[in-house]
Structures are given as structure tokens and as C-alpha cells.
Nucleic acid binder design. Structure first.
Length: 672
RNA sequence: GGCGGUGUAGCUCAGCUGGUUAGAGCAUGGGAUUCAUAAGCCCAGGGUCGGUGGUUCGAAUCCACCCGCCGCUACCA
């Protein structure tokens, strides 16, 4: 009986790069999805970038680009990071999509018809300078409790106090630096309490793990309050139907992004989205971190119920990642970006290590660097890869690379491994990967012992056919272990398949054995982790996070002139910038902005017309060094041929500022 | 502050509804090997199960309190 299911991971926010903390969730989910697929189930893995909200808007502004450009770039980066960790989404979409807009409106309208949307007037901080509303996070000031300066509007990092933004002493907008004013506005609210009974029913049906349930009961006891689902413009998001400057709060459309991603996939693959999501034919599961339980356990199912849509079957909540027992730290270098990890280490190491720690409950998991190295090397290399490594070459070199048949002892070994299948499947299903990994490692111990007991390296000298029989058992055992490991280590499995000269393995293949079959020459399945590389990764993380932290203070974050599109180093190298000495300068007859400059590039001369006459007098320029674009295509102008450009900053008119090199630069030197 | 989770050998973790001398892997020490990515095999040392008190014939396992750590405390993505 095959199952059909839709699985999602929480949508990463398009405000920053993926780090190893995020990866806990994506790897946990990916392993589960791969497991389901390996069992023959239909399982779609959907995700997307979460792209709306004030932080995106401000971030884009500070980079001098549009939010659309920002989220498009981040989407690309996120997707690349995930792909390189072998996280295989069936669709990785975006919440800034037509599908998502339509679904958001549909769900909103559904809630409206259900009578669960109400309007209320609230007071909120407003930045008069920037003409925008300020979330608490964008208000800074002095903590009312401990008087620590420069704290956020919701809580204090120093004394952990929670307060209202209005309680801050000397509050200022983090965007403009000006004190915010309080202003009234009408917001839309979703009446969560209307769905209390429906939610209780959902929890009773096992929507979440029991420890999560306890937490939810607490929230229930505290009372379900109305949820503010609108934001006033300017805001990057979807406009609310019937309004012209009110938008859906990003957290409203974020989970709807799961559906939008699904819908988009359905369109591309000829599936009926309404049927896939709503008919009950597919089980629906969300993997999330414990920090966003409130949204996924309460708001999200309530919204779906209000709109008469199918709600998910289960939430799988996981804990956070600590490194060496502590919160990830930028200064300690343990705040490792996915990309940084990939620059130094094999992603399979992390997949294996996380799997070895994940047990399906909400506890935090710890990445202990020494443990990481030891564990990967001893389990993965020392035990698992060791089996084919110690038997493959022997079979190839002396016995023609052909497997024989299993004898009774070999059969017994394989049976023992195959017997574990039921428990392993159960443990994968219940997210207890740690137990799966322990079990696989223990089975690898059994196999290594088998090799030791049978000593094929001795047999091969005296009884080569007996050696073949032993090696046949060992390689078949490796094959079974590979099947068990495949959801965690797809690349390792692929190499094994190539080595064994077989089609891709799935769980059903434990029912068969490989006999009288010729394999390919052995190639290494995985390399050892070197501690030095891990150290280098940590060091690298320290370096790269040090700078942005200092530069993060958004005192004057806006650019008058938006940043140009990204260019490569090759693009930049096309432009030949040279130090030039202004040999002569003169006003141009009939032009009020131009100066005719004669530039000395260390022997080579260029005549350039520069539009700087309003800012510089010719006599002040002669003899000074400037930077010029030396390989610019000459341009015929009314007053003659201009053979280059002089670099300058400023908006123009009298506000033009020529670039000057530091003392020591010589005419003709190239700028790199 | 309130609440949820968690605290078991050097490290990372198993120990379900309480029951013989508390387990695994890694790390450490010793030994026999050499097919294998200094991998594999055998043996050994190592823990008063965060603390105190209680329930019980008996508690790491149940209860109370205390301490440490992680998190949540809703308009913050």
C-alpha cells in the first residue's frame, strides 16, 4: 500500500543566507522525504523563500535595490546552498508569486465570510522622516529596566526584559534615527478564538508531539487573542482586497507559500491542485522549528479551517542547533554559513552527523566539533566504508571481480541485517534517525567481525573460491547497509551503486541478493574529515562575520543612486583604470560644463573632455593625479574626440569630486 | 516573573509504564593481526545517573523543592 504525501520545511526568510542552524530542519526533512520515496511512496517536498515584510523592504533600500531584485538574488543563493547539501525539493518557490497572492486572497476572503475578520484601531510607532510604520524591532532606545542603551523595541538583550516599545527611554527609529511618533491606524484582525474548539479537536487527533502539546495547552489557557494580519504601507507584500494602502502581514502569506509552491508544482506537472491539497488523498506534513510553533499550530490551521481548506495532518517540531554546547556565535566562528561549510567540508558529513543526533523530539541538538570529526571518521569511514574497501579490491584483483553465491554463514549474516529493516523503517518514519544510525553502525560492527572471523585475506591464498564466498557475503551486507543509509547519504549510496554495478537501490531491494554478478573496480566512497579543515572553516566564519557585524549599524542606510546589478571580477577587469596626471586643462569654447584635459598615463597621452567645469577651475587641475578609464571606446563629440573618462563621485553640477590616489601612485599604474 | 524542555562515564547519547552488579559509540590504556582511508578484531579502566528530601521491600526511572542550561512569553520573519 503506497501512500501519497506533501511535505514542507519552514520557508527561510529572504533576508539573509542559510546557515548550519537552518540546515537541521532541511536535512531532517530531506532525509524523511528520501526515506518515503525509497519506500515507494509518492512524496512531494515543497518549500519556498519567505519574501515579504518590513525587514526585506529596509534591507533592499539599504542596498539600493528593489525588494524584487533582493529576493530574486537571495532565492538563487538559498537554492544553490540547499542543492549543494543534496536537499532535493520537488519545488522551491517564492511567496512573492501570483499563486500565493491568489491563495492569500482566497483564504482571507474565506475568513471574512466566516465572520472571523474584524477591524480595530491601534496605535503604532511611525517614522515621520521615512514615512513608514515601525515594527518594534526597528525602534531602538534605552532599556527601561536596566538602562542598557541601544536596545530593540520589544526586549532587552542585556537584561532580557520584555516591554512595549513605548516604554523605551529616548526611542529612535532604527531607519532614520529620528524619534518615532505614535499614530493611529485601522488594522485587520483574525479572530483566532473562533477556532478554539476546532483546534482542540485537531490537537486531540495528534497534530503535534506530546511535549509540544503541553506548550500549546499553556497558550490555550492564556486565551487566544485576535491576530493582527494587516500592515499599512509602505510595505512589501500583497495588498488587501478593497484597500489601497494596507497589506497582508508577512506571516499571513508565509505559510500559504506552502500551498503556492504545491500549486505551482501541480501546474507544471499536470496535477489538479484542488485535488492534491484538498481531497485528503495526500497526507500533509510540516517540519518546523520550535520557535514558530505558535504560527503553525494555531494561526495556520485556523486560517485553513476558516477558509474551508484542508489543514495539515501533523507538525514535526524540532529544536535548535548549538555548537560545542553553546548558542552559535559569530565571534567564536560557530555561526557557520552553509556556503562557508561547503567551501571546506563534504556536505555528507553534516548530513550524517545531524542524522546521528536527531531523535524527533523538540530538544536542541549539539554539534560538538571533536565529536563530529570522531564520529564521521570512525562510523562512516572506519566501519561502513571499510567493508567494501577491504573486500572490493580483493575480489577485483584476484577473483576477476565476480561475486559467487552465499553459503549458509553468509546467508545468516544477510538475514540478520535484513531483519533490522522493520525497526529501521519504523524509526525513520518516527524521525528517530539517531537510533537508525546507531543501529546501522552496530550492524557494520557485526559485518566487520564477520570479515575478521573468516579472514578472506588468508583464504584467498589457499582456498580462493571460499574467499569469494566470504567476499560475496560482505559485499551483499554492504549493499543492505547502503539501502538503510541511502536517505541520509545519497551520494555515498550512488557511489556504492556504481561500484556494485547495479541500478539505484530502494528499500524493496533488501529482499534480493547479488550473486554471480560482476562489480566495478572499487573507488573510495568517502574521504575522512580532517580536523584542520574544520578549524579552517571556523576561522573563516570568524573572519567573514566580524566585518558585517560592525558595519550593520544602519545609521544612514539609504543610497541615492541604486546599486548596479552584480558583476563578476572578470567584468570589472574589463575596465582598465589608470592613474593619470593632468598635463593640461582648458575651458572648452561653447561648452559650459566641459573641460578639455590632456592626461599623461606615464608616457601615453589621452585627450579627454570631462564634464567638471562647474566644479573645478582648469588652473587648479594641472599637475594633479586622477583615475581615468583608459580603455574606454573613444567618443566623437561636438568639440573633438574624447579618449577616456575621469572618475569622479557626486551628483553633478558643482558637487563633483575627483578621485585622487594616495601619495606614491605613479601615472600609468593600473587600478586593481 | 510565569510556563515548556533538559541535566546519565572525558565527549555525544540510549535507558518504555520503578526491580538482579547502570548501557552504547567515540576517546583512553593493553594485546593479537594486516585485507582495508593509522581502518578492523579481542580485553581493560572509567559514572555515588545535577542537588536535597520524600513515596516504596526496592528509584537514574514516581513526587516535592532547589541549582544549571535551552526556549517560549503572540503583532518580532
Amino acid at each position: 500500500m503506497t501512500r501519497k504525501m506533501l511535505v514542507t520545511s519552514a520557508l527561510p526568510y529572504a533576508n539573509g543566507p542559510i546557515h548550519i542552524g537552518h540546515l537541521v530542519e532541511y536535512l531532517q526533512t530531506d532525509i524523511w522525504v528520501r526515506f518515503q520515496k525509497a519506500c515507494g511512496n509518492t512524496c512531494f517536498y515543497f518549500c519556498a523563500d519567505d519574501t515579504h515584510g518590513t525587514p526585506i523592504m529596509i534591507r533592499a533600500k539599504s542596498e539600493g535595490i528593489t525588494p524584487e531584485t533582493l529576493i530574486e538574488r537571495v532565492h538563487r543563493e538559498h537554492y544553490k546552498d540547499f542543492s549543494d547539501f543534496a536537499i532535493a525539493f520537488d519545488n522551491y518557490y517564492t511567496t512573492h508569486s501570483e499563486e500565493n497572492r491568489i491563495l492569500s486572497e482566497r483564504i482571507y476572503n474565506g475568513a471574512l465570510e466566516a465572520g472571523s475578520i474584524v477591524k480595530k484601531t491601534i496605535e503604532q510607532a511611525y517614522d515621520d522622516q521615512e514615512k513608514m510604520w515601525l515594527p518594534d524591532r526597528f525602534i531602538k532606545g534605552t532599556c527601561p529596566r536596566c538602562k542598557a542603551e541601544n536596545q530593540y523595541g520589544d526586549s532587552c538583550d542585556i537584561c532580557a526584559a520584555h516591554y512595549q516599545a513605548t516604554e523605551l527611554i529616548n526611542p529612535v527609529s532604527a531607519v532614520s534615527g529620528h524619534p518615532p511618533v505614535l499614530k493611529e491606524s485601522t488594522h485587520y484582525f483574525f479572530r483566532l478564538a473562533d477556532f478554539a474548539d476546532a483546534l482542540k479537536e485537531l490537537f486531540a487527533a495528534g497534530y503535534v508531539q506530546s511535549s509540544v502539546r503541553n506548550k500549546l495547552d499553556e497558550w490555550f489557557a492564556a486565551g487566544l487573542k485576535d491576530w493582527d494580519i494587516s500592515r499599512d504601507g509602505p510595505y512589501f507584500g500583497f495588498i488587501i482586497p478593497g484597500e489601497d494602502d494596507k497589506y497582508f502581514y508577512v506571516w499571513l502569506d508565509a505559510p500559504i507559500g506552502y500551498m503556492a509552491s504545491c500549486w505551482n508544482y501541480c501546474k507544471q506537472n499536470g496535477l489538479d491542485f484542488e485535488k492534491v491539497w484538498n481531497s485528503g488523498e495526500y497526507e500533509i506534513y510540516h517540519f518546523i522549528g520550535k520557535d514558530i510553533m505558535y504560527f503553525h499550530a494555531l494561526f495556520w490551521p485556523a486560517l485553513l479551517i476558516s477558509a474551508k481548506l484542508r489543514r495539515p495532518d501533523k507538525l514535526f517540531v524540532h529544536g535548535f542547533l548549538t555548537v560545542n554546547g553553546q548558542k552559535m556565535s559569530k565571534s567564536k566562528g560557530t555561526f557557520v554559513m552553509a556556503r562557508t561549510y561547503l567551501n571546506h567540508l563534504d556536505p555528507q558529513f553534516l548530513r550524517y552527523y545531524y542524522a546521528s543526533k536527531l531523535s524527533g523530539d523538540v530538544g536542541d541538538i549539539d554539534l560538538n566539533v571533536d565529536d563530529f570529526v570522531n564520529r564521521v571518521n570512525s562510523d562512516l569511514v572506519g566501519k561502513l566504508a571499510n567493508l567494501p574497501s577491504r573486500s572490493g579490491p580483493m575480489l577485483t584483483k584476484t577473483l576477476g571481480g565476480t561475486l559467487g553465491t552465499l553459503d549458509e554463514a553468509g546467508r545468516a549474516l544477510i538475514d540478520e541485517l535484513v531483519q533490522a529493516r522493520g525497526v529501521i523503517v519504523q524509526e525513520y518514519e518516527t524521525l528517530n534517525y539517531a537510533s537508525v544510525i546507531r543501529r546501522i553502525a552496530a550492524l557494520a560492527d557485526v559485518c566487520n567481525k564477520y570479515v575478521e572471523d573468516n579472514q578472506p585475506w588468508s583464504l584467498i591464498k589457499t582456498h580462493p573460491e571460499k574467499a569469494r564466498t566470504v567476499l560475496t557475503a560482505v559485499l551483499n551486507a554492504s549493499r543492505i547497509l547502503t539501502i538503510y543509509l541511502k536517505p541520509v547519504l545519497p551520494d555515498f549510496a550512488a557511489k556504492m551503486e556504481r561500484f556494485l554495478n547495479i541500478p539505484p537501490l530502494s528499500f524493496a531491494d533488501t529482499d534480493t541478493v547479488l550473486e554471480n554478478h560482476t562489480i566495478n573496480p572499487y573507488e573510495r566512497l568517502i574521504e575522512r574529515v580532517e580536523k584542520e579543515k574544520v578549524d579552517a572553516m571556523i576561522e573563516d566564519s570568524k573572519q567573514q562575520t566580524a566585518a558585517p557585524v560592525a558595519a550593520a549599524e544602519p545609521s544612514k542606510p539609504t543610497l541615492d543612486e541604486p546599486l548596479a546589478e552584480e558583476c563578476t571580477i572578470e567584468d570589472f577587469m574589463k575596465v582598465d583604470l589608470r592613474i593619470a596626471k593632468i598635463a593640461s586643462a582648458s575651458a572648452v569654447e561653447g561648452a559650459d560644463k566641459l573641460l578639455a584635459l590632456e592626461l599623461d598615463l606615464g608616457g601615453v597621452t589621452r585627450n579627454v573632455f570631462a564634464g567638471i567645469a562647474k566644479a573645478y577651475k582648469p588652473e587648479d587641475l594641472v599637475g594633479r593625479l586622477v583615475v581615468c578609464v583608459a580603455n574606454l571606446k573613444p567618443r566623437k563629440m561636438k568639440f573633438g574626440l574624447s579618449e577616456g573618462m575621469v572618475c569622479a563621485a557626486g551628483p553633478g553640477g558643482s558637487d563633483i569630486f575627483l578621485l585622487t590616489p594616495d601619495t606614491g601612485a605613479q601615472p600609468g599604474q593600473r587600478v586593481h
